[in-house]
Simulated assay, not measured.
Amino acid sequence: MNFVRRDIILIVGLFLFMIGLLPFMAPIYAVLIVLGMYFGIKVYVGKRRQLIENDVGEGICMECGSKILNKKCPKCDYIQE
């Protein structure tokens, strides 16, 4: 879980959410909920990013949109040969 610039927006949003929770519950519970949400979002985004990177592989063909394997498109490059 690396810290990237857009995490600042996530932290600010969760801080504002925590401020919204304070009138309804004790501050420690609001902090625990926000911390759980932060790490839950970070884990979810990390898993999704890894899944997308595995699906894309070396890249995507600009012509047909399929996954590039061995620096060749399985659809476009074999049609031309």
Results as ranks from 00 to 15, higher is better:
Phe3Val: 09
Tyr44Ile: 06
Phe24Val: 07
Leu14Glu: 08
Ile11Trp: 11
Val56Gly: 01
Asn54Pro: 00
Gly36Trp: 01
Leu10Thr: 13
Leu51Trp: 10
Gly59Ser: 03
Leu21Met: 15
Ile11Ser: 12
Gly59Trp: 04
Leu69Gln: 12
Cys61Gly: 04
Glu81Tyr: 05
Met37Glu: 02
Gly65Val: 06
Asn54Arg: 10
Tyr29Gln: 08
Leu69Ile: 15
Ile28Met: 15
Cys76Gly: 00
Ala26Glu: 15
Gln80Phe: 09
Lys42Arg: 15
Ile41Glu: 01
Leu21Arg: 07
Tyr29Thr: 10
Tyr29Cys: 08
Lys67Phe: 00
Leu51Asn: 01
Lys72Met: 12
Leu22Met: 14
Pro74Asn: 03
Ile79Trp: 06
Ser66Met: 10
Tyr29Arg: 07
Tyr29Ala: 08
Phe15Lys: 08
Leu21Cys: 15
Ile8Ser: 07
Lys47Gln: 15
Phe24Lys: 12
Lys67Leu: 00
Asp55His: 06
Arg5Thr: 14
Ser66Phe: 07
Gly36Thr: 10
Glu53Thr: 04
Leu14Val: 04
Lys75His: 04
Tyr38Met: 07
Phe17Trp: 02
Phe24His: 12
Ile68His: 01
Gln80Met: 04
Phe17Asn: 07
Val4Ala: 11
Tyr78Arg: 05
Leu35Cys: 09
Gly65Lys: 05
Cys61Lys: 05
Met1Lys: 08
Ala30Glu: 09
Met25Lys: 12
Phe24Gln: 10
Met62Ile: 03
Ile9Arg: 12
Ile33His: 06
Glu58Phe: 07
Lys47Met: 09
Leu32Lys: 10
